[in-house]
Design a protein around this nucleic acid. Structure first.
Lengths: 187, 187
DNA sequence: CACCACATTTACCGATCGGTTAATCTTGAA
DNA sequence: TTCAAGATTAACCGATCGGTAAATGTGGTG
């Protein structure tokens, strides 16, 4: 199996886990849905857990790249970019196959902080926090770290409520709250 | 089995699901952990799904009662009570066996909005929203509904980040953000 | 003591779990 | 054309899944 086939496998596994959940999707179903035989999967990944971690790493890279690109396309100034992150969220929520956040779901199914899957999810959110912190700093916010934490809390809450209730309501209110917090931080 | 024994079963099932997750805890393990034989469990609940819904309903009742009591104990004025909700959150996060929120985890494992478990989780959050809305209204906030949504987003985000990163950091920043939003809403 | 109603346990059902082994198929070089 | 090497498939492993049926206790009433 070529390297690109391996990437295909991880990409398709990502979709399958996203639709079905981690415990709920077994390796047999994964094999049929990815079109890669179980034996071939185990050539590349020692365990199901390893495969899940690989899908999370792929998603981390894809999502953060996408987020940075969208934010930069939507606003040029750091202050505007902080708010644009929530417009990017809105775009994500509107995608027809939006299924909440892989990392929140992964940490829900693998609760132990020491578990590699949980740790991988935590790392993703830490990197998002770093990005927001960088933007806040560039915007001239005094306590950039605090504002970044607050905005990350808003994004996570918006994701949860977009999934549980309504995406539009969630992101609209999160964006409004973000605007208030950003403006107050810049006084 | 008496009614109280049934309550014991649901209460112990709640703990077991909280520790292990819904898919991860099987009915056999549930039987040993609750001390109620599998056959006896199926006397009261037609399916595992029914049992999960029952545990969520119990948790909903317990949690909201607890939250209202704590908020009323921590503050007497509606405005102070809105902020006190986040002090109550802090108390919850500090409990030694804090394991994130049952409802977020349930909606993560049962993603379909039409699924009874997902719907039960959504209903819980809707009731929390109602409570915050009532407090905001009593505090004299003009757009009470909007503030309630924003504060609920903060609580959900705080729960997610308390579980993924650090409870104290999460609740401290959520509380600070809440204070800013509440103050701005009352200008 | 006999007997009935009910609760509990034990054993079992087919299906699926994560993971492995052995056989089969494909392919490219000699 | 032959044959070794690698990939793929299919069959299988013990364990566990959600759920059920039959056997075994157990306690109260006649």
């Amino acid at each position: 199996m070529s390297a690109s086939k391996r990437d295909d496998l991880v990409q398709n596994a990502l979709k399958a886990f996203n639709r079905g959940g981690y415990h709920a999707i077994g390796m047999d179903k994964l094999a049929t849905e990815t079109g890669v035989s179980k034996t071939a999967i185990y050539k590349h990944f020692r365990t199901k857990e390893d495969l899940i971690v690989a899908t999370l790493r792929l998603r981390d890279e894809q999502f953060r790249n996408w987020m940075v690109r969208r934010v930069e396309a939507l606003a040029s100034e750091p202050k505007g970019q902080l708010l644009a992150a929530f417009d990017a969220l809105a775009e994500w929520f509107r995608e027809p196959d939006f299924q909440s956040c892989m990392f929140i779901k992964a940490s829900s199914e693998y609760q132990d902080r020491a578990h590699p899957i949980h740790a991988t999810a935590a790392e993703h959110k830490r990197l998002l926090l770093q990005y927001l912190s960088k933007l806040a700093h560039a915007a001239g916010v005094e306590d950039a770290e605090a504002l970044a934490h607050q905005l990350l809390i808003l994004t996570e809450g918006a994701i949860v409520l977009a999934h549980l209730h309504d995406p539009e309501t969630a992101v609209t209110n999160a964006r409004a709250a973000a605007k208030t917090l950003i403006d107050q931080a810049l006084i």
